[in-house]
């Protein structure tokens, strides 16, 4: 797919959509945090791509170009997204972190319990930490690329990713303090 022009007719564009929609969806799902917003953003991303098809100079991969449009679409839409924020639970039912490990729990069950907590800890990160962390973790971006994508300084990107990791690490320490032997 690299180094080729964007399609200018509907059929080719449909093929490009089918080829890349899952990749774009995965990125946006992880950034937005829910399927509903991610689906919307995928549509917006491809609409933008169609409008900008003539601006694509062909000096990079279409996928890279598409990802950049997806990030930009997410950033533009961020204020209106409906992502449920687990860390702002506001009086709703407590978040289910899975069953408590007991003496009789198997090692596999303990591992599952631990991973559920880690996943939840990542989901509960503040947006300003979670977004660079998602790009770092899933997109494999260097900190400089994260900074460019989010419009922040490289130092800020580094601090946010580090704090995200420290926050998850802290949760792990709490769990170990509580269930040390079992975990």
């Amino acid at each position: 797919m690299a180094d080729r022009a964007l399609p200018v007719d509907g059929d080719e564009f449909r093929r490009l959509f089918e080829e890349h929609k899952d990749t774009v969806f995965r990125v946006l799902y992880r950034l937005a945090g829910n399927r509903h917003d991610a689906e919307d953003l995928v549509q917006d991303t491809f609409v933008r791509l169609w409008r900008k098809r003539e601006q694509f100079r062909g000096d990079g991969s279409v996928e890279g170009y598409l990802r950049r449009i997806a990030y930009r679409t997410f950033l533009n839409a961020r204020a209106r997204l409906s992502r449920p924020r687990a860390h702002e639970n506001n009086g709703r039912e407590p978040v289910d972190h899975g069953p408590d490990p007991s003496e009789s729990a198997s090692r596999a069950e303990l591992r599952s319990f631990l991973l559920a907590h880690v996943r939840r800890a990542v989901e509960e990160l503040p947006d300003s930490w979670r977004e660079p962390f998602v790009l770092f973790r899933y997109e494999g971006m260097k900190l400089k690329e994260i900074a460019d994508t989010l419009g922040i300084t490289p130092k800020a990107a580094e601090i946010r990713v580090a704090r995200a990791l420290e926050r998850v690490s802290g949760r792990l320490r709490e769990l170990k303090a509580k269930y040390g032997e079992a975990l």
Binding site: L114, L115, A116, V118, R119, V122, R137, Y138, L165, V168, L172
Partner: peptide
């Protein structure tokens, strides 16, 4: 980070 990778 290993746990994060596995969890996610």
């Amino acid at each position: 980070y290993e746990l994060v990778v596995r969890a996610t």
